[in-house]
Design a protein around this nucleic acid. Structure first.
Ligand SMILES: [Mn+2]
Ligand SMILES: [Mn+2]
Ligand SMILES: [Zn+2]
Ligand SMILES: [Zn+2]
Lengths: 134, 134
DNA sequence: TTCGAACAGGATAATAATTCTCAATATAGT
DNA sequence: ACTATATTGAGAATTATTATCCTGTTCGAA
């Protein structure tokens, strides 16, 4: 059985507090403020476990690091190609797409995810400023 | 300007031959059959360069490794959660989705992709066999 | 053509993210 | 309290990727 240890509780709480889709390392920094002795391995181990148990969402998209999300219902994301920031996209989930896909593949479909790439407002401004400085 | 060196030519040719969305390392193995002295770094370096120049597609999806695709037009993929195999999905690209997303975000949208996860036919069979053996 | 600068390759080192190992500790159930 | 099991924290190991460095090659101007 999966024990609800202090570590797991705090990891889950801190993840639930933010909307930033933090990486394991970012979460480690947040959690360490409350549990200074926690190990990075513990954070990784438990994020993995909680994702497997459907308690949280593991977002494996572009960029070099995995990100995590306390919102477990399927929804879509946009990632800044400049800084890696990930935000939620408030558009309806395309359930009909799954049926469409199922009709054209011999895979047994588990789920799907849509990821947009773009430039976040902050990076747009920075780029404009850099452009002007040329 | 980007010189078309022998290495680049062979990498591009080998990538074009397959539909398997190979990783850099898989491509390295393919290319080495023709250019046994080529370095893995050269493969990485040139895949990156060619992706930047729009000659090929870099697929950053789930799984631990980046994959590459000679088909540059946007299209969608399905990845086997068991073995990591990636296949094309033959469903139309949702261009209207981009407009929808643009309306709800302050990001400047560059592109999007859809990734399904599922179980490939081979893994379905293997799992069924393992299930039966229990 | 010849010369030099820029380009590119191969070998290898370095980095980054993640996973593994293992002894020590905590916990639940009896 | 006792025992079996689960979990932790520290650190080593692994994996994928990128950077460095030196050498050779190529392009293009003189
Ligand atoms: Mn989200
Ligand atoms: Mn493809
Ligand atoms: Zn940004
Ligand atoms: Zn499979």
């Amino acid at each position: 059985m999966l024990r609800l240890t202090t570590q797991r509780q705090v990891i889950l709480e801190e993840l639930s507090k933010v909307t930033s889709h933090p990486t394991a390392n970012e979460l480690y920094d947040l959690v360490r403020k409350r549990l200074p002795r926690i190990g990075l391995g513990t954070v990784y181990r438990n994020l993995e476990l909680m994702a497997d148990n459907g308690m949280i969402l593991k977002i494996e998209v572009g960029g070099t690091q995995k990100r995590f999300d306390a919102t477990t219902e399927n929804h879509y994301h946009i990632r800044c190609a400049e800084c890696g920031k990930v935000d939620d996209l408030d558009i309806p989930v395309l359930n009909n797409l799954v049926a469409q896909a199922a009709a054209t593949t011999s895979y047994q479909i588990i789920g799907h995810h849509v990821e947009f790439t773009g430039t976040c407002p902050a990076c747009q401004q920075r780029l404009a400023r850099e452009q002007a400085a040329q």
